[in-house]
Design a protein around this nucleic acid. Structure first.
Length: 420
RNA sequence: GGAGGGGUAGCGUAAUUGGUAACGCAGUGGUCUUGAAAACCACCGCCUUCGGGCUUGCAGGUUCGAGUCCUGUCCCCUCCGCCA
């Protein structure tokens, strides 16, 4: 959520920044609603002050045994006025709140202009795409041939966009998770294991709701939501809290993630790339506002180095305004080379949300020497998406005989096994 | 899922028949001190258009006035049931 004060004070700047995200918002409506709300609120508070006074006076008279009937009648009228004004304020308040919840975060100044992924700017590159002396196979073919991916039975027991990992596939996935968690822990992230089902308040806190309700799974009879990313439970750990511990706070968690992928029909229908359920190791960081941009660079390196340790070629792009997400102020996508696609494919997204989530979720801290609390900055990133990493491994490390080499760094997690 | 008990400031506790949230500890700043402790003073939830308003888990209701009464709901504890 954006600061209403900021919208009030510099509407043109906000408007210009949002235009960079190719979002058009009618800030004039906000301005009108805000003015009206402030005006009515003032009236209400003045009347309440009067009611508090006469109510106290009633109390005094009664204590002295005097008659207070006239005063009670008068106070009752004030109460009725307050009620009427409050009733008139309700729709204004609701409309303003509802609107503010749908306004995206403003991008930072360095975000490149642009409309789509084509306008993203390459920031870093590692490795070179492998050259094969034999026909390249896609990971779904490699996996099925090796008996480690079973899409057909997954369709039977669940449906489209689900996968069964079998034998070495399950083992490889678990190895990757452990490898990634250890990698994050070595870089100072505290490991957490969180619920996969969260309440609606958490979804509002990180910004999935109200705009993206249709993208998540709703467990109807109990009114829980399946997390679309561990960013949700991790960031909401400190919802409605004033963080007492010294910042930064760095967390990592492995969780399954669930996405409805509504409207995605036909895209990436084969393989592990786009699933309703996938595994991910996530990084979340709570940081002081002045340090959040430097923190973002660190987190980016924390994620990139996973791919470097696995020897997978990738490049990193800074997202242009039009390709950015709802709550992000600055986002880097890490894209891994996928031979079957013949291009780089997103495997991680690392972002600073500035104070956008913190304001929604009420996450504050007390700056050293300050009496007032301030909103923290929240950052998050994947390190990494496990299914996509597995796909990249199978494809980049495939051999002519259909088997797949296991990179050095992963072998200790596979009991020394060097190929599948 | 059922029955009972509970939720008040970071922690522990108060608040007559409904009368306008009190106290202790912890913490922060100050006085005093060579320094510290002790003592004393102030601060010690949120918003504010600086008038004031709000805050007893949350949302409503009754009332001139609700921590207190009523309804709904969330969470915690104990017991029973179920269960990995």
């Amino acid at each position: 959520m954006l600061d209403i004060k900021r919208i009030r004070q510099e509407p043109d700047t906000v408007k210009a920044l949002l235009a960079k995200k190719h979002v058009k918002v009618n800030l004039d409506t906000v301005k009108e609603l805000d003015q009206k709300r402030r005006q009515v609120t003032l009236q209400i508070e003045q009347l309440k002050a009067r009611r508090n006074q006469s109510s106290e006076a009633v109390s005094q008279r009664k204590k002295r045994g005097e008659d207070a009937e006239a005063l009670i009648v008068e106070t009752r009228q004030v109460g009725e006025e307050i009620k009427a004004l409050e009733t008139s304020l309700e729709p204004i308040d609701k409309e303003l709140q509802d609107f503010l919840l749908t306004v995206p975060n403003t991008p930072l100044p360095q975000v490149p202009a642009g409309e789509s992924a084509a306008d993203n700017v390459e920031a870093h590159k590692f490795g070179t795409p492998p050259v094969f002396s034999f026909p390249v196979q896609a990971h779904w073919d490699i996996g099925e041939a090796l008996g480690i991916l079973d899409f057909e039975r997954a369709r039977k027991i669940s449906g489209a966009r689900f996968t069964v990992l079998a034998d070495g596939g399950a083992r490889l996935s678990r190895a990757l998770i452990n490898f990634m968690l250890d990698h994050a822990r070595a870089r100072g992230y505290q490991e957490m294991a969180t619920p996969y089902l969260v309440n609606a308040a958490s979804m509002f806190g990180t910004g999935q709701f109200p705009k993206f309700v249709d993208d998540v799974f709703h467990v109807v009879p109990h009114d829980y939501y399946l997390i679309p990313t561990a960013e949700v439970p991790l960031t909401n750990l400190y919802r409605d809290e004033i963080i007492a511990a010294p910042l930064p706070l760095k967390f990592t968690a492995y969780t399954a993630s669930f996405r409805a992928e509504a409207g995605a029909a036909g895209r990436d229908t084969r393989g592990l790339i786009r699933q309703h359920q996938f595994d991910k190791v996530e990084l979340v960081r709570f940081e002081e506002p002045e340090k959040s941009e430097a923190a973002l660079q660190q987190m980016l390196r924390d994620a990139e180095s996973v791919l470097e340790d696995l020897g997978l070629p990738y490049h990193t792009v800074m997202l242009c305004g039009g390709d950015m997400g709802f709550g992000q102020a600055l986002t880097y996508d890490i894209e891994v080379w996928l031979p079957s696609y013949g291009k780089y494919v997103e495997i991680s997204s690392v972002s600073t949300m500035t104070d956008f989530q913190a304001r929604r979720a009420g996450i504050r801290y007390r700056p050293a020497g300050s009496k007032k609390t301030e909103l923290v900055h929240t950052l998050n990133g994947s390190a990494l998406a496990v299914g996509r990493t597995m796909a990249a491994l199978l494809e980049n490390y495939q051999m002519a005989n259909g088997h797949v080499q296991i990179p050095e760094a992963l072998r200790p997690y596979m009991g020394g096994l060097d190929q599948l």
